[in-house]
Amino acid sequence: MQQLSYFELVGFGPNGWGWALLTAAGMTIAVAICGFLAGSVVGTLVAWGKIGGNLVIRSLADGYTTVLRGIPDLLVIYLFYFGGSAALGAIGSLFGADGFIGVPAFVTGALAIGIISGAYQAEVFRGAYQVVSRGEIEAARSVGMHRWLMFRRIIAPQVLRYAIPGLGNTWQLVLKESALISVTGLVELLRQSHIAAGSTRRPFDFYLTAAVLYLLITWVSTYLFQRAETHSMRGMRRAS
């Protein structure tokens, strides 16, 4: 077996890992997006609990963010992977199912990222909510808007606008966290590089390629978030 050149190794030929790596990068993006969206749902609920909840809900929400930000993400993922599935299995057998409730690694991964990033997104949303001027909320109330309508028309659009920079940071975090999902067996970018490195004994070539692909994803998504930010602030420019 002669030494393959770098481009043969990561290319699309018979001995190349190119397609495998690209598919894996697609998986990274997919799991990161799903995890990010799950985190938005969790984050909104937690932020809502922190702002509007009673003492019990508030301390639960505070406890959640403190714990999730205090323990390593790797542990959360491990815990979720083993614990979550066992719990679901237990619930399943309670209902008489044959025990095998297969949770795909993708779903576990996305949920784990959602739970972790939810803690960060909650803080982003809470911060953004506090910027929304009290006067606007009072004005909305005075014209007789009820809660849901007010949330939809007044609060959500403004919170989202102020939250975009913070969400951009959280997205970067999520993207990097998705690399940790590799420990659960999901074949995303890092795991695929790891497999390729072990199989070809060319670790440097593959980890470097992975790093470049991650950078590329980061770079494109930073650009998109910047576009979103300018777009959402277009009504604000005259004021400044």
Binding site: A20, G99, G102, I195, S199
Partner: peptide
């Protein structure tokens, strides 16, 4: 429903490591 469907088809899911040549490993292209 997913659980039920799996039971009907009689699929056995087997885990391997994929990194323990020659017992089990991952070849070119994954």
């Amino acid at each position: 429903t997913i659980g039920g469907a799996a039971a009907q088809e009689k699929t056995v899911k087997i885990a391997t490591e994929g990194a323990y040549a020659p017992w089990n490993f991952t070849g070119a292209g994954g």
